[in-house]
Each structure stands twice: as C-alpha cells, then as structure tokens.
Amino acid sequence: MNLLSDEILNKYLDGELTPTEKAEVEELLKESESDRKRFNALKLIHENLSAMEIDEVSPGFNEKVMLTLEKKYARTKQQNYFIAAVTFFFGFICIGIVAYLLSGIISSSGGSESTKLIDIIKQTGEVIITFSQKLFTGEGLSIIGSVFSFVIIIAGHIFYEQQKRMKTNLGR
C-alpha cells in the first residue's frame, strides 16, 4: 500500500519539505516497501536526468550565424544610405519651395515698416526667386524634370537590384 503520494516524493527530492516533513517521509519510506521502490525509481530518474548529455550543433554554426548577421546588417546600412539620400534630395526641394513662397509673401507685403532682418530675408528671397525663375521656367524646367525623373528611375532600379541580390544571398 502506498503511504506517500508522488507529489510528496517529488517535493522530497527537490528539497521542498520542512525538516519535520522530511523526517516523516523518511520514516514512512522505511515502513513501506512499495513507496521505497517508487522513490528509488524517481531518484534514479532524477539522477539520470541530471546526467543528460548536451547535444552539439554542427561545426561552423557560429560562422553561419555571423554571416547572416553581416549580410543583414550590410543591407540595412545600404537601405539607410539610400533613404538618407532621397530624404536629403526631397528636403532640399521642399526648402526651395518654402523659401520661394516666403519671399513672395514678403515682397508683396510692402516695405514701409521693414526692418533690417526683413530686408535681408527680402534680398535673399529675391535671389532665390531669380534663381528659381531661371531654373523652373521654360527650358530649365524641362531639363530639371528630365534629370529628376532619370535619377528616380536609376535609384529605383539600383535599390530593386540590391534587394534582389540580398534576398538571394540570404536564401543560400
């Protein structure tokens, strides 16, 4: 007849019982042969689980992981450069447009109460206006448009090719 539950035997093995409970279990183990047998089996399992061997990964595992990381890291870096270049390009254009609009507003507001600062902005605005007028009118505009479209197409193509190459490398 079993006097001790599996739960108690497991707790005894894990050292989770109080000294009094521990002494009681030891006493009962002396009395009951079936409990002793169960406890010995559990102890045997416990000892052999502690002696379980650790499996080893195949040779070259570290290199494989590091290579994957390097490729991934390189791709991220390239993507970042590309995004930074595109952002800079569009940022430059946006600043130009804002400056153009600002100078237009300033020049149309009249100059009776203008201060030194406004004069400077006005002058700068006029320079930008003249430059932009030259750049964005007639032939200049079509040339800029063509160059801009060409740059976008080339950049898109390079980006697409890079992505494709990286994907192929990672898939190997």
Partner: peptide
C-alpha cells in the same frame, strides 16, 4: 518525472 518513473517501474 512521474511518467518516466512509471515507465521504468
């Protein structure tokens, strides 16, 4: 652990 113990018993 009990499952393993039961098996060897």
């Amino acid at each position: 652990r009990n499952a393993l113990k039961d098996y060897i018993l």
